[in-house]
Design a protein around this nucleic acid. Structure first.
Lengths: 157, 157
DNA sequence: GGCCGATCCATGGGATCCCATGCATTGTCT
DNA sequence: AGACAATGCATGGGATCCCATGGATCGGCC
């Protein structure tokens, strides 16, 4: 369906204005935004909230720490790191152009309630119909049996 | 919105079964599917239909040609190449697991007409609301003024 | 305290994606 | 025929994404 493909592509071709002005990629800006909403108690927390893999977030966050936009403080559990915006990072989130993913939420919030409910219902029924919801629980920290560590022997047949 | 993010993630974590069995990535399988629907008169044609960049398609198609799943034949205009599936490629498209992007279309086709119309309308109004449609015309070969060749001086400010 | 399984994150490897650019080809104009 | 702008694709560079894995840390059990 063309509309869905366009949406996906828009999200992919995220605004380059932030990059031109601030030297930030869309992924970096998205992580900044996520931390602006709430600091994270771990990298895995960020990964869950951005719905990307831990290893991807590790790389992006490292760059943001380099740029002094994010601080990374060892937690009590020394395997973890607490992540929050620096003052500089906060200014950037406030002044940088909005990512499509972020401004889309504004569009939805501004919708009349009835229309918004319809839209949400349509999206959710579609996500259920194509099995997208079965991908999510692992990422959303819902109660789940521990997932076996990934290995070659666990590759689905 | 969670449902939409789940959908996007599902598409990203495309089925790994094809990869395990056939050594094909989701992108490769998607291109096979697109060529199965109709051979392409050029790489740009494939790029438009997959809504990805020409350079990405160039790489993916090169690999499919290597694997003898696609043939690449110079066209009359020697800048272009005509692409079509080999017999081997056709067998694979028929027997390989369906990509979520492809099976999603089946889900939609199987919907009752009223529900389908609602869903399509929801997606299209959302796409319009977030400006996704303004990204697309260039890719869809619609009549448009020629886009200037990309160069550093054309980077949006 | 020692052992072991579980967990967290950094890192490697590979693929894909985009933008930019070079080179070959084509079409148009003089 | 020659010049030039436009077009198509391969390729380089960089970023991100995922899976796999290693090393450090933690928690539970003996």
């Amino acid at each position: 369906m063309v509309a869905l493909r366009r949406i996906v592509r828009l999200f992919r071709l995220a605004d380059r204005e932030a990059e031109a002005q601030y030297g930030l990629s869309a992924a970096q800006l998205f992580v900044l935004h996520v931390l602006w909403q709430e600091p994270a108690m771990s990298l895995a927390d960020v990964a869950a909230r951005t719905m990307t893999d831990q290893s991807s977030v590790s790389t992006v966050v490292a760059k943001l720490v380099d740029k002094k936009l994010v601080t990374k403080k060892p937690a009590t559990d020394r395997r973890r790191a607490e992540l929050r915006l620096t003052a500089k990072g906060e200014i950037i989130v406030r002044t940088a152009p909005r990512l499509p993913q972020v401004s889309a939420l504004d569009v939805i919030a501004a919708m009349p309630g009835k229309q918004r409910a319809e839209l949400v219902r349509a999206f959710e029924s579609f996500a259920a119909a194509i099995g997208a919801n079965e991908m999510a629980p692992r990422m959303l920290f819902e109660d789940e049996p521990a997932r076996p560590r990934r290995s070659r022997t666990d590759v689905p047949a």
